[in-house]
Simulated scan of single mutants.
Amino acid sequence: MKKFKFQLDTVLRYKTQVLDIRLAEHGTALANVRRQEGVLEQAVKHREACEEEYREMKEQGLTIADAMKYETGIEVLERTVQRETEKLRELRKIEEQRRAALVQAKQETQSLEKLREMKRGEYDSMVAKAEEKEIDDLVMARRSASLREAGEPG
């Protein structure tokens, strides 16, 4: 009997390659999100440190010009935080899209693998039946030969 060959093996290989690509893309997107979370955290800490320093300086007393410098600096830092927050939002949206593509690729690959397993089971069952028939035929042939040798009609 010929060796098992799944007709959709090339499609399965292609889908597996696509799955690997989607996995890498999602990993990259996730790394970008994590990196941006770190950037945002640093921006927030920097703004908070500047605000704390401003409060301390106000308690000690400072000139109007220095107060304006602090307020302007804090405004710039706040815009930076907002900009970094928006970048993070966009990166999370991309990560979500990549995850959805990964899930779809995984489902397609799994359904092909299940189909392959089913076809393999059918093939194995067919092989087992063919071997069983071959054994039965061999037993019948031997029985028939031994009966002929014994002189009995077969």
Results as ranks from 00 to 15, higher is better:
149 E>D: 03
116 R>G: 04
129 K>F: 05
77 L>T: 08
52 E>W: 14
49 A>C: 13
66 D>T: 09
105 A>M: 10
143 R>H: 12
110 Q>F: 01
147 L>T: 05
107 Q>G: 00
26 H>T: 03
36 Q>H: 10
130 A>S: 15
29 A>K: 00
86 E>R: 12
45 K>N: 03
141 A>C: 07
2 K>H: 06
141 A>I: 15
84 E>T: 15
100 A>E: 01
51 E>F: 01
119 K>Y: 01
48 E>V: 03
106 K>C: 02
132 E>A: 09
92 R>I: 14
97 Q>N: 03
48 E>H: 08
38 G>S: 05
142 R>V: 03
45 K>W: 01
46 H>L: 11
38 G>C: 08
71 E>F: 01
11 V>P: 03
107 Q>M: 08
84 E>A: 15
146 S>D: 06
131 E>G: 08
96 E>R: 01
85 T>H: 07
71 E>D: 02
111 S>A: 08
18 V>K: 14
92 R>G: 12
35 R>L: 13
53 E>A: 11
135 I>W: 07
152 E>W: 13
36 Q>W: 07
57 M>L: 06
93 K>M: 09
39 V>E: 04
86 E>I: 13
132 E>H: 14
99 R>D: 00
44 V>G: 05
137 D>H: 05
89 R>S: 08
55 R>A: 03
16 T>D: 00
48 E>L: 00
114 K>C: 02
134 E>W: 11
3 K>Q: 05
142 R>E: 05
93 K>P: 01
107 Q>K: 09
121 G>L: 13
150 A>D: 04
100 A>F: 04
64 I>C: 01
132 E>I: 07
122 E>H: 12
114 K>F: 02
65 A>Q: 13
85 T>P: 12
82 Q>S: 12
154 G>P: 10
46 H>A: 11
95 E>P: 04
37 E>P: 09
21 I>A: 05
129 K>N: 07
118 M>G: 11
9 D>V: 13
99 R>N: 00
134 E>K: 12
86 E>L: 15
41 E>K: 06
14 Y>Q: 09
34 R>M: 14
35 R>P: 11
145 A>P: 03
63 T>R: 01
52 E>V: 13
154 G>M: 13
142 R>G: 02
117 E>Q: 10
132 E>P: 00
3 K>M: 04
141 A>P: 08
92 R>Y: 11
63 T>L: 03
57 M>D: 10
2 K>N: 07
76 V>G: 13
43 A>L: 06
152 E>D: 10
53 E>L: 06
27 G>T: 14
60 Q>R: 12
125 S>Q: 09
152 E>N: 12
120 R>D: 04
87 K>G: 07
83 R>N: 09
142 R>H: 07
27 G>R: 15
149 E>N: 02
65 A>T: 09
34 R>A: 09
57 M>W: 06
129 K>R: 14
138 L>R: 10
12 L>S: 04
140 M>I: 14
56 E>C: 00
154 G>A: 13
57 M>K: 05
12 L>C: 04
130 A>K: 15
63 T>M: 01
30 L>E: 04
62 L>D: 00
20 D>E: 13
87 K>R: 12
79 R>V: 14
66 D>C: 03
92 R>W: 11
36 Q>Y: 05
9 D>L: 06
69 K>Y: 08
115 L>P: 07
47 R>F: 01
112 L>Q: 01
55 R>L: 09
120 R>P: 00
32 N>I: 07
56 E>Q: 08
75 E>Q: 08
141 A>E: 12
107 Q>P: 00
32 N>C: 09
104 Q>R: 09
69 K>I: 15
80 T>W: 00
